[in-house]
Computed example of a mutant assay.
Amino acid sequence: MANTNHNIFREIFNGITFSEKELDVISKVFIKKHYKKGSIIFKENEDIDEMFYIYDGCLRTFHMDDSGKEHTVQFGIKDWWITDYIAYFTDTKAYMTLEVLEDATVYSLTKANKAFFYSEIPQVQSFIIRKLEGAYAAFQKRIILSLSQSAKARYLIFLDTHSDLEKKLKNYHIASYLGITTESLSRIRKELYNP
């Protein structure tokens, strides 16, 4: 079992060479969890103490506005990290809900375990920072596109960037991610595929 976990952690932290002792530390701080499709891992206004590495499956974070409309903030698939980063990094209540869209296996890292992990294996901190920097850059790009591009252009960019996701997602998930209605999404698809 330890060898299997060790191989998984080598996969997660691809590019870093670990000693067996370091892999044992990683095995103690990362908790493997399984979630079924439709599960809610956390909801808005809850305390957040974990971020998740997605080993397999598909998840999404979304915010529900005062009128009950969902706004998808992030999708997550294999080899992505996901949580409500606002709550996780600022010790506030969750702004978002984390939903499982496809049966998932994740590895959870609590704040306390993260601090211990970084102190025991410092090279991992720079690895995770690089991942978070990439995510931050992607979020900023998405905001700029959302403010400056048409719905059709945003959909085409989504297809180009996330072609592997489209078949896994319901139309309303994609529409809420793009900031449009499902009717608008249907109209865009019709224009593209049935000119």
Rank of each mutant, 00 (worst) to 15 (best):
Y85Q: 02
Y85K: 01
Y85R: 01
Y85W: 15
I86P: 00
I86W: 04
I86K: 01
Y88P: 09
Y88V: 10
Y88D: 07
F89L: 10
F89V: 09
F89Y: 12
F89Q: 04
T90S: 13
D91V: 01
T92P: 00
T92K: 10
T92V: 12
K93Q: 10
A94H: 07
A94Y: 07
Y95S: 11
M96G: 00
M96K: 10
M96F: 07
M96C: 09
M96A: 05
T97E: 03
E99D: 03
V100S: 06
V100T: 08
V100D: 00
V100R: 02
L101N: 08
L101H: 03
E102Y: 05
D103M: 07
D103A: 10
A104H: 07
T105S: 06
V106T: 15
V106Q: 02
V106H: 04
V106G: 03
V106I: 13
Y107H: 05
Y107I: 07
T110S: 15
T110R: 03
T110K: 07
T110D: 09
K111L: 11
K111P: 11
A112K: 14
A112M: 08
A112E: 14
N113E: 10
N113T: 06
N113Q: 06
K114E: 15
K114H: 02
A115K: 14
A115D: 14
F116T: 08
F116H: 08
F116P: 00
Y118C: 05
Y118L: 08
S119Q: 14
E120I: 03
E120R: 09
I121N: 07
Q123A: 09
Q123F: 04
V124I: 15
Q125K: 10
S126A: 11
S126N: 11
I128Y: 04
I128D: 05
I128H: 04
I128E: 07
I129D: 06
I129C: 05
I129H: 08
R130P: 00
R130F: 09
R130C: 02
K131F: 02
L132A: 02
L132M: 15
L132G: 00
L132S: 02
E133T: 13
E133L: 13
E133M: 15
G134Y: 07
G134T: 14
G134R: 13
G134Q: 12
G134A: 11
G134E: 12
Y136V: 12
Y136F: 13
Y136E: 01
Q140Y: 09
K141R: 13
K141S: 12
R142C: 00
R142N: 14
I143F: 05
I143M: 12
I143T: 13
I143Q: 10
I144T: 12
L145S: 11
S146Q: 14
S146T: 15
L147F: 13
L147H: 11
S148G: 09
S148N: 14
Q149A: 14
S150T: 15
S150A: 06
A151T: 10
A151Q: 10
K152I: 03
K152N: 02
K152T: 15
A153E: 14
A153M: 06
A153P: 00
A153V: 13
R154M: 09
R154T: 04
R154C: 06
R154Y: 07
Y155P: 03
Y155E: 10
L156M: 08
I157G: 00
F158C: 03
L159Q: 11
L159N: 03
D160I: 00
D160E: 14
D160W: 00
T161W: 00
T161P: 03
